[in-house]
């Protein structure tokens, strides 16, 4: 028995070595960087916990950090609402087996395969205040007052980016919801019909509770990807999280501090590593809590 265990250890070894080399080592060494002051050139100086103290005590850093966390939470909420609701509706429609449903299942998935930069550029064009189709369309139907600088307005910019982000990945919830719906045994529907439940009631009483685990999985995926997001903001409103930091999330704050700005503040790798560590902690703690909540109310057929 013991021998076979050691044999299994050997099987695990290659993966373990690769994982350590390419995941654990970079992760730990970048966390270690948070104890140093380094511009990226020349030597690093050990500064102990100074970077952490600076982040939490200097108002110019702390205000941005709190703002970034707040925006990140909003970004997550907007994305998750849009993805789950729209994903569920689309999946429910495809599940009705209307003609051409398979075609739409592929269509909804196409944006997922696009590069984030392409998606960002595309939506930036859509939101453009002058020639963007959104404003042109609004003006064409007489809603001139609603046409505005979508990405230039503090109250709309983050929502607009969340929509673009959710649009790109809506295909994944659709597929997952659909798989969940198709996995529900027909007997449940049949017996519910005998009891007199139809349509919407069937959906809420049978389909929805049984696909709730999918919502959990999607929320986890979106949580991890949103709290480590950067590209979509970079592509749409830039590293400053314009306008007035209303789209500034942890990823952009990290980039700005770690690599410096074009002709602006010099790079501060140590402080960047502090923010990266915070992102890591938020994601790990968030996922653990979420798993704990879910584990307590797991359901089966």
């Amino acid at each position: 028995m013991k021998r076979s265990k050691s044999i299994f250890a050997i099987f695990v070894l290659p993966a373990f070595i690769l994982y350590t080399l390419f995941m654990l080592y970079p992760l730990i060494s970048s966390l270690g960087l948070s104890f140093f002051s380094w511009t990226g050139y020349g030597a690093k100086t050990y500064v102990g916990l100074n970077n952490f103290i600076k982040l939490f005590t200097r108002p110019e850093h702390f205000v941005r950090f709190i703002g970034a966390i707040k925006n990140n939470v909003l970004f997550f909420i907007y994305t998750i609402l849009f993805q789950n609701i729209v994903g569920l509706i689309l999946a429910a429609f495809i599940n009705l087996n209307i003609k051409g449903a398979k075609f739409f299942r592929s269509v909804y998935f196409i944006p997922t395969t696009l590069s984030i930069v392409v998606v960002g550029f595309l939506w930036k064009l859509i939101y453009n205040p002058i020639w963007g189709p959104l404003n042109v369309g609004l003006r064409a139907i007489g809603l001139d007052s609603m046409a505005m600088a979508w990405l230039g307005n503090e109250s709309t910019a983050l929502i607009c980016i969340s929509i673009a982000n959710a649009w790109q990945y809506v295909g994944i919830p659709v597929i997952l919801f659909l798989a969940g719906m198709q996995g529900i045994p027909d007997e449940l529907y049949e017996s519910s019909e005998l009891d007199g439940a139809t349509g919407i009631k069937q959906f809420w009483k049978i389909t929805f509770p049984l696909i709730a685990p999918v919502i959990f999985i999607i929320t986890t995926i979106v949580f991890v990807s949103n709290f480590s997001a950067f590209e979509i903001i970079y592509a749409m409103t830039g590293t400053l999280g314009a306008p007035n930091y209303s789209t500034d999330i942890l990823g952009t704050l990290f980039y700005r501090i770690c690599f410096g700005q074009r002709l602006g503040t010099p790079p501060d790798m140590g402080m960047g590593a502090v923010i990266a560590s915070c992102m890591f902690i938020i994601i790990v703690v968030g996922v653990l809590i979420w798993f704990k909540i879910y584990g307590e109310r797991e359901t089966g057929y």
């Binding site: 453009n128 002058i130 505005m148 600088a149």
Partner: peptide
């Protein structure tokens, strides 16, 4: 231009 809050340098260049 109206909506200049959301116009980037590249947008202006193109205009």
């Amino acid at each position: 231009p109206e909506g200049y809050e959301g116009l980037t340098y590249e947008d202006c260049q193109q205009m």
